[in-house]
Each structure stands twice: as structure tokens, then as C-alpha cells.
Nucleic acid binder design. Structure first.
Lengths: 247, 247
DNA sequence: CGCTACAGTTGATCTGGATCAAGGCAGTCT
DNA sequence: AGACTGCCTTGATCCAGATCAACTGTAGCG
């Protein structure tokens, strides 16, 4: 719940809000103002960030780590509705109450802005509000693509889609790898995957085992995944060859 | 594909973009500019508006009628990812290609803005880009709420959720009705409902019959629905009493 | 009028994924 | 060490919803 660890202006590298504020028109004033209302928060893996319905008096950008957005029904059924990776935005200007549960999946650092001044900034700066609009539109597209996964894909296709997304996101961050052979560490437990995909954890486990048996993926331990032929994985997603599934 | 039918400045009553442009700061210039780039388009029920991947050189606001946003897999499985009712926004500033299929479900009239000048306007007017941001955030929340429906709810809960949403939306438009007893015309075929809910049309039909048999809904013909006790319907959605499902 | 077409209902059967249950395999605490 | 806990796998069985198929009702239309 503390730990700044970032002091220099330039080190919050993944924060898209700030980047744009710097680059777009060199609006120095805005940048300096942003600096005055920003602060860092850290959470340990597993810790909740907020619960749906609770007061949330900041908006933030993920700097390090992964967080999940989930919804839960009274009887405990839960659905993950978003996965927040570094550079993703969290919170909602104009709303003081969280709509979803936010949980740190790995150790997590957020770059936070107090909500009120941030909203003020939005009102006065078209640069920032446009950047935010763009990001929100991307998230909306991603959410809608995910609706196809949830509503119409088989368990096997769901797993393949999820692995493809994580592999792609991973490739963006570490562009060293060939597109054909990728390896990464699954940031999610089987249960979290199940919650994302609308399945049970048993089904997730079985489908991963099946993909392994068929040589479409290789595992080292439970979490480290190697995809020998990305095209073969893609063929299992049910998407047409080029299609672009985000997360 | 023509039919203006709107000539007076004030008559595009449902268009949220324009409203805000008038109200927020009385930015007369912007309003007049908006007028010069706006035009109307009409579509008959069943007609496509655009296909995913096609060029889309306007953004628009639904004035009259209903449109659907859908995705289709090569083998024909389709998922509806959004339902556009009057006042909803269509299109994506900053992107010239449609991400989803848009189809007129009923006869439809759009209030369109040519994309390029609209984007220009966004860049210069914080009022409009903020209004758009707000709308997009609402849509994102709605999409995420829908992910819970698709991923975790039973067929019966899905149907009840859909009926509840349509009833609520309907009550907003016609505030004359008591909240307890509502009646409306289903704007969707059984197949369209199935595509929205990630079910088959047979299952939709069976579940509606079941709700009818239990007196939770009453039907006149196939489309006209009466909900004698909204609370009882809500109890079938699986949501906690107050929860706010949008569309 | 009969013919076709479309939307919806209902029944019979099948099956993919859920559910229930039993272990396995690290870590980590004592 | 042993015991406990969290995460994962695998097997056996069940069932909600898909699939296949027949049929009803209603609206155009030559």
C-alpha cells in the first residue's frame, strides 16, 4: 500500500496518459500538474485493489504486474471481465464507485491520480481526454471480441484463444522472439483462466492436457508454456487466419 | 438510403452528441459546424448498415429504430455484441474500418457525421470528446456486464436478463408505465435473441414458454410481452436485487 | 384458392462440459 | 522429517442445452 520507487519524471514509462501529455503538444503545464496529483501504490499478489460498489477515489495506470476485473454473483459464480496488463487504465472518470472487483493477480504497482483533479484535467485538456477515449474504445472492442469467445466458442477454442492472446501480448513486450516459436509464463491459475473463459477449472486443465498431448503446446511445469508453431495454435481458436483478438 | 425528414435544428432530439454541444457551454460555432457535416440515412428492417472490415466513413447516432452489432465465425456461429437503440452511438473515431457487422433490426434512421470533420471537431472540442468518452465508458461497462451473462448464467437466467433489460430500456422511453407492470414489443426474433445470449433459438423458445407457463411473463402473439410483476422476473435473472444491467 | 416462405413451438435424442471425487506434486511451516 | 496447503490432474458420472426433426400459425402472392 505504499512504495513509490519512482522518483524521476521519465520513469513511469508505461503510463500512457503521461506519455501523451508529454509528447502530443509538449504541454508542460499539464505535465507538471499531473506530477502533483500522481502517486504510486503497490499490492501483493492476491490482494484486492477494490471491491465492486466501494468508493474509488483515484484512477490509475498499471505500471508493473497484472490485475483482474471480475464480477461475482451471490452464489459465487464469477466471471473475469478484463485483464489489466502494464499500461492498461483502471477506474472511471466521472464515477466515484467501482463497478467491478479489481484484484492483483501478480505483485502490482499502480500509478494513481486522484480522481477529482484528474477529472478537472480532462475537462481542460483535449489531449488527455482524447487519449483516454482512444484507450476506452480499444477496450470496448476487446470486450466485444471476448463476447464471441464466451458466447460461441467451444472449451478448446476458448483455451486456444486465451493462449494466443497472452502469447501475442507477451510478444509485444519482448519483441526478441520469432513469431513462430514463443515461450512465456502463464500469469493465471487454472481457476483464473476458467473464470476468464466461463469454464470450470477441471475443463481448463483437461483442454490444456489435450493440447499438450497433440503437441500444439509444450509445458515445463504448470505455468511455463512453449508454443512450437503459433499458426497451429491459431488454427484451434476458430478465428479466421488474420483476426486480431485483444485482451 | 435517403430520407432526411429532419430539417429543424432541434428535432434530432435523441442525438446525444448534438445535445451536449448545445447545452454544455453554448458553443454556437461548434453547433453550426456540426450541422454542416451531418446528414441522415435510413435503412429498412433486415438491411445491413456495414460489414465488419468494410470502409465506414461516418460516425452516427441512432435516431429511430434498432440496430445490432454482430460477429460471425467462418462456420456461421454468430454472436451479437451490442444492441443499438435510439441515442446510441455507432462507429469509431480514429478508425476507418468497421470492426463488427451492423444490421438494421427494425426500420432505422441514423444521424451521421462524416468521419474526418468529426474527428477534427473532437480534437478541438473537449466538450464533445468528453461526452463521447462518457458514452463509451457506459458501453464498456455494459459489455462487461454482458460478459457475466454469457459466461456464467443459465439459459433461463439469460432470457430473464434480456427481458429485464428490454423492459427497463422501454420504461425509460415511455415513463408512463408503473414499474411493476410493463408491456412491450420484443424487437428481436428468437434467433436474434439466441445470438445475443449465446444460445440456440430452440432453447430461447423453450425458456420463454417455461416463463410463460409459470406466469412470470404473458404473451400476446409471439412478440408482445407483458410482465405482470417485474420483481418476479428480476428474481430469475440471478442478479442481486438492485443490480443494474444495461444493454 | 393453394403455394411458398418465414417465424415459432415442441418432441426425442445426443453430447460437451459440469459436477463429484480421488490423488499428485511442489513449497513451506513446525 | 512429517504435515499441511495451494495448485493441478485425472477419472466417473450427470445433465443443461445442442442438435435433429416434425409440425403449427400466419402472411404474402400469383
Amino acid at each position: 500500500m505504499n512504495a513509490p520507487a519512482f522518483t524521476d519524471n521519465r520513469d513511469c514509462g508505461t503510463c500512457p496518459i503521461r506519455h501523451r501529455a508529454v509528447c502530443a503538444r509538449c504541454e508542460k503545464e499539464e505535465l507538471e500538474y499531473l506530477e502533483t496529483i500522481k502517486y504510486y501504490r503497490s499490492y501483493e499478489a492476491g490482494q484486492p485493489v477494490v471491491w465492486a460498489g466501494d468508493q474509488l477515489d483515484f484512477v490509475a495506470s498499471v505500471v508493473v504486474g497484472i490485475a483482474s476485473l471480475t464480477q461475482t454473483m451471490e452464489d459465487g459464480r464469477t466471471q473475469m471481465v478484463g485483464l489489466l496488463l502494464p499500461s492498461d487504465f483502471l477506474g472511471r472518470p466521472g464515477r466515484s464507485v467501482a463497478s467491478f472487483n479489481v484484484t492483483a493477480i501478480s505483485d502490482l504497482t499502480l500509478c494513481c491520480f486522484r480522481r477529482k483533479p484528474f477529472e478537472q484535467l480532462l475537462r481542460s485538456s483535449p489531449t488527455i481526454s482524447q487519449r483516454l477515449l482512444e484507450m476506452t474504445l480499444d477496450e470496448l472492442d476487446a470486450a466485444r471480441e471476448w463476447m464471441l469467445v464466451l458466447g460461441r466458442k467451444t472449451a478448446r477454442e476458448k483455451i486456444a484463444s486465451l493462449l494466443a492472446i497472452i502469447a501475442r501480448r507477451n510478444a509485444q513486450l519482448h519483441p526478441g522472439q520469432t513469431p513462430e516459436e514463443t515461450t512465456f509464463i502463464l500469469p493465471l491459475t487454472r481457476e483464473a483462466m476458467a473464470d476468464y473463459l466461463g469454464l470450470t477449472l477441471e475443463t481448463v486443465s483437461r483442454q490444456i492436457s489435450a493440447l499438450k498431448k497433440e503437441g500444439i503446446v509444450e509445458l515445463e511445469g504448470n505455468r511455463r508454456i512453449l508454443i512450437p508453431d503459433f499458426g497451429r495454435l491459431l488454427a484451434e481458436t476458430g478465428d479466421d487466419a488474420d483476426g486480431g483478438m485483444p485482451a
